[in-house]
Every structure is written in structure tokens, then in C-alpha cells.
Design a protein around this nucleic acid. Structure first.
Lengths: 136, 136
DNA sequence: AACGTTGGTCTCAAAAAGAGACTAGCACTA
DNA sequence: TAGTGCTAGTCTCTTTTTGAGACCAACGTT
């Protein structure tokens, strides 16, 4: 059974020690399950820049359905990341803007987005390599 | 139509200027759609600590199905975040460990996890507030 | 001989997401 | 004045994704 070789921690604990985390029923999951959706980060990224109206967001993210746009915005609002304000124009217009909590979340989150942008080539290369070794 | 009030940028551009990002067909989406899955961050968090075998991961995350565990690990492997090594024991055992790319991703990602842990109370409070105002 | 262990795959049911029609009230146009 | 478009959604239907659980083969243990 002594098969496994190097089981040293990858992070040194100063960076982020999550050894005490209970994977089941843990606050991190509770929060992350919401912001990990397909559209959440995208909308947070947009609203971090400036407030937008419903239709503006729809045009900004062309391949989102109205259904998912509504639902994702509701979820983000419920968790306190964005605010919704209705202006009594005819027809009524609705503006979404980030809250302080949302901004606070987006600070570390933006670092991940920047990492994704910077390392996209590496990921694409890894995919090609994997796919080549698979068809063998 | 001059309804919308404050449309000033939320971030000052030094933090993270993504105003030039194309929301559609953008590298960030391509990378993020993979790590934004329900189980991805959880598995990355575990493997950031140390290498694990298939069965160990399954026990570590009790409510994941074998099917999704297999699939998520494959996806993470394909994108180059983790490595898979088969040991020719009987029955064969398989170990998963993080790559350098995975560790590089987990650095900013862990900051988001820490944020989630720290701000869980705020999020829960926001949910309660939202739900109360809804049933009115 | 029966059972547990390994890391999966396969099938079927349930949940989630996408596509598109539909709404109301007003403004603008023909 | 009738027709059209705008707003921010909701409702229904179909497709995709996910979850639950059975099954596999070969070996070790009891």
C-alpha cells in the first residue's frame, strides 16, 4: 500500500492553509456555489466597471438568455453583491449596480480573471497536448 | 432618458481594468468556464494541499458522484491543472496531483476562497434580508 | 466460497439551462 | 388611428447537464 510518493503540502500554509476545512457543509462552498455559475463572474465583471440596465447587460453578453440573466441577477442580488433599482419611467427601467460587498469580493476575484487572461495560452496548449495523447 | 445617476467606474483602473474585454469569445470565459464548475474549486483546494487518490477524493467530498468526480478530474487534467498517474498495483491505484500551472492558478484562487470564508456571515445576512423583503 | 477493494463506465431519472413566444403601457411613426 | 417598437421580465417547451445507482474484472482477505 506504500504506493504514494510525494505527499508534501503544495502550499506552505502561509499562503492559504485550508487543512481544517470541512469539504462538506462548509461556508466556502455555500458562498462559492453562487459565484461559480457560468454567468456570475461575467456579470460581476461588467457591473464592477459601472452600473448597467437590464437591456444593456443583455446586449453586453449576447449569448445569455433573458431567463438566465434575470435569474443570475436575482441570485447576485440575494447574496448582496449587487443592488436593483427601478426607475418609474414608462416603460420602467431597472438599473443594477454593485454593492460594497460585491466590490470587496471582486477584488480577489479580479485577480483570478487576470490570471485566466494571462495564462490562456498555457491552458490551450495543455488541451492540445491532452487531446493528442487521447486519440492514441 | 437621463434617468441613470452615477455611472462612474467602480474600480479605478489600477486594480483591474477590463474595459477592453470582449465578453463574447474571450479568453477569460474560456478558462473560467472550466474552473467555475461546482466541484472544480473544491478538488483544486484538496489537491493544493497534497496529492490524493480517486477513492480518497471521493471520501473527502462525500456528496460528489463517481461520475462527476471522474469527469471533473478529466477536465482539470485536460486544462493542465492536475496530473494523473496510474500505479500498476492489483487493483490498480490512481493518484492525482497538482501541476505548476495548477499551483499558479490556485494562488489567486485561494484568495477568493479565503474571502468566501471571511464574508460568509455577510452573505448569509444579505440572504435573510432579501428573503424577508420578498415575502412582503 | 463469499465478500471487499480498486477506478472507473453505463443507464436511467431528475434538475438545470437554453430558445422562443408572450405580456402591458406608453411613444413614435405612417 | 393603426401599426410598430421599447421596456423588463415571465411562461412554456426542448435540450443539456447532473445525480443515483448498478455493474465490471481481478485480486486479497476471511
Amino acid at each position: 500500500m506504500a504506493v504514494n510518493a510525494s505527499r508534501k503540502p503544495v502550499l506552505d500554509g502561509k499562503e492559504c492553509d485550508m487543512s481544517g476545512w470541512d469539504m462538506n457543509n462548509c461556508p466556502v462552498r455555500d458562498v462559492l456555489d453562487r459565484i461559480a455559475g457560468k454567468w456570475s463572474t461575467l456579470l460581476l465583471g461588467a457591473l464592477a466597471r459601472q452600473p448597467y440596465r437590464f437591456g444593456e447587460l443583455r446586449r453586453l453578453v449576447p449569448d445569455i438568455s433573458q431567463r438566465m440573466l434575470t435569474q443570475t441577477l436575482r441570485d447576485l442580488q440575494r447574496d448582496g453583491y449587487i443592488e436593483r433599482e427601478v426607475f418609474p419611467t414608462k416603460p420602467p427601467s431597472v438599473e443594477y449596480r454593485m454593492t460594497d460587498l460585491g466590490r470587496s469580493l471582486f477584488e480577489p476575484l479580479s485577480k483570478v480573471l487576470l490570471w485566466a487572461e494571462a495564462n490562456h495560452p498555457s491552458v490551450k496548449a495543455a488541451r492540445v497536448k491532452y487531446d493528442e495523447s487521447e486519440l492514441a
